[in-house]
Nucleic acid binder design. Structure first.
Lengths: 275, 275
DNA sequence: CGGGATCTTGAGCAGGTTCAAATGCTGTGG
DNA sequence: CCACAGCATTTGAACCTGCTCAAGATCCCG
């Protein structure tokens, strides 16, 4: 049970997608990449194509993509790297609302007020595509599928937030961390990364801020998980040894999701990793 | 400071809008009522008009508008009454994600998967308008302003959730209740109800479930607020005596919002209530 | 190799939960 | 109209999870 799985350095920090693959990333909920694919077709809005292909930005750790109160000018799709979004109280307490990774779309939440109510900070060197809102709107007006994608992305963000609300309102420390690890694992799987072995791009303190608990408690619970043989942890490298047991600990809503992502899925993925 | 404000029995439980007023309710973020207004104009999609005018439902306390896993068939606008939406863990713990009142729109969050991930339960006798999704989509395809409204509603729901995430992740019991009372007050003000005196349509237990704390703690903190002269509480009837101090206690994000809703707004509203 | 950031571990404390019981309110049926 | 059943609310007291403070260990980068 200890070291059957060979080390594969695949994780948030190791993503390096060649430029040519920008439009080939498989991501069912990612409207912007769908948009990219469309942009390669025959009848394309040239403004959109230009904005997708040319408006790319490389950001370094610590930089802000946008801050609270900034006017909404563009939405962003992450090509590689990772970004955290936060809200804060007036005395400076910070609640991280989401860790965004390759394929995620940021910024649509500001459509209600046209000003950001959250801030987006880069966690590691990150490449984003920038789509100005006027371009997006123009294209959306002509293309129903783009509109549907936008609604889907927004709607998905609501679902993700609901899951986090349940976690923050009703789960204890152990359940929070189990939920966190599994949710990360699922998202990596969707993007064809290894779901059982990955690197965290966030610090313990960030994890705490996201899960509504102190940094120290994060450490302690993770240490307990390791003692119990559920995971192997080396700095920011994580290996899930027993995802099924983690699922039980997570106390997730079973009725709906257990059908979609049964424990067996993890087992199979695990088998694929073995030598 | 005690009883300068005359009792006005306006609150969640007292709403009784005549049928003729269905389309005249002023609600800037309510796309469905905007939709209603449109439906009275000359060039109207007859399917939409029919669904708005005819598809009304009267629900009684305890009934479910939809449950987790139900397929998305329609979205709903509340005409009168109130509805709570919840998510739950597999062992039955319930997190209320929102209290919806007159003018709110429910159901758009299910667009991502076409199945509800939450449940909506009626808190008191409630009248809703039902708009089938196919009707909404058909009409949205023809009318850009409807589309914008939908995006705005979704986007607003994300903002509301973010506020709740901050509350659940970072605030203590006192801050939670102060935030709750003020947020309710603001929403009532937007709908032209008295923001300083109102009836709660939810139980202490529901408030606890929403704010991530035990029913007993809700009671204790509210009792403390009353001792300190911040509020007057009689069963479910609330009077805010010192909203400015509540704002300080709430620890809300001041920078952005204090400009929009300064404490003076409450003072003025209060003056309007006096004899 | 050094210094700052990150991570880990320990010990004591406290806010909020849990359990329990008393009180108050509401609506229903006789 | 009143008594009663059932639910909601309130209050008390003990307990416990997770926080805070503090110190040490480890890592990363220049």
């Amino acid at each position: 049970m200890t070291a059957m799985v060979r080390k594969m350095p695949i994780g948030l920090m190791d993503v390096a997608t060649p430029t040519s693959e920008i439009c080939s990333i498989s991501c069912s909920v990612c409207g912007i990449y769908a948009l990219c694919r469309e942009a390669n077709g025959p009848d394309v809005d040239p403004r959109l194509q230009e904005s997708i292909v040319k408006n790319r930005r490389l950001l370094k750790r610590g930089e802000f993509l946008y801050r609270i109160g900034d006017p909404l000018r563009a939405i962003y799709a992450i090509r590689s790297g990772s970004i955290k979004t936060c809200v804060r109280t007036n005395d400076g307490r910070v609640q991280i609302t989401s860790f965004h990774i390759s394929g995620d779309v940021l910024g649509l939440g500001a459509f209600a007020t046209h000003h950001y109510a959250s801030e987006a900070q880069v966690m590691e060197t990150t490449m984003v595509c920038e789509v100005p809102v006027d371009v997006l709107e123009a294209y959306g007006n002509e293309n129903p599928s783009i509109r549907q994608q936008m609604v889907k992305i927004l709607s998905q963000e609501i679902l993700d937030n609901q899951e986090l609300l349940l976690l923050l309102g009703k789960k204890n420390a152990e359940e929070r961390l189990a939920t966190f690890l599994l949710s990360l694992s699922r998202r990596l799987l969707k993007r064809s990364y290894s779901p059982l072995e990955f690197n965290l791009s966030m610090s313990r303190s960030d994890i705490g801020s996201y899960l509504g608990m102190a940094e120290e408690t994060v450490c302690r619970v993770l240490a307990r998980f390791e003692e119990e043989g559920l995971i192997v942890l080396t700095r920011r490298h994580v290996q899930l040894l027993n995802p099924d047991r983690l699922m039980v600990l997570a106390g997730d809503e079973s009725a709906v999701k257990s059908k979609e992502v049964p424990g067996a899925a993890f087992g199979n993925a695990c088998a694929g990793l073995k030598t």
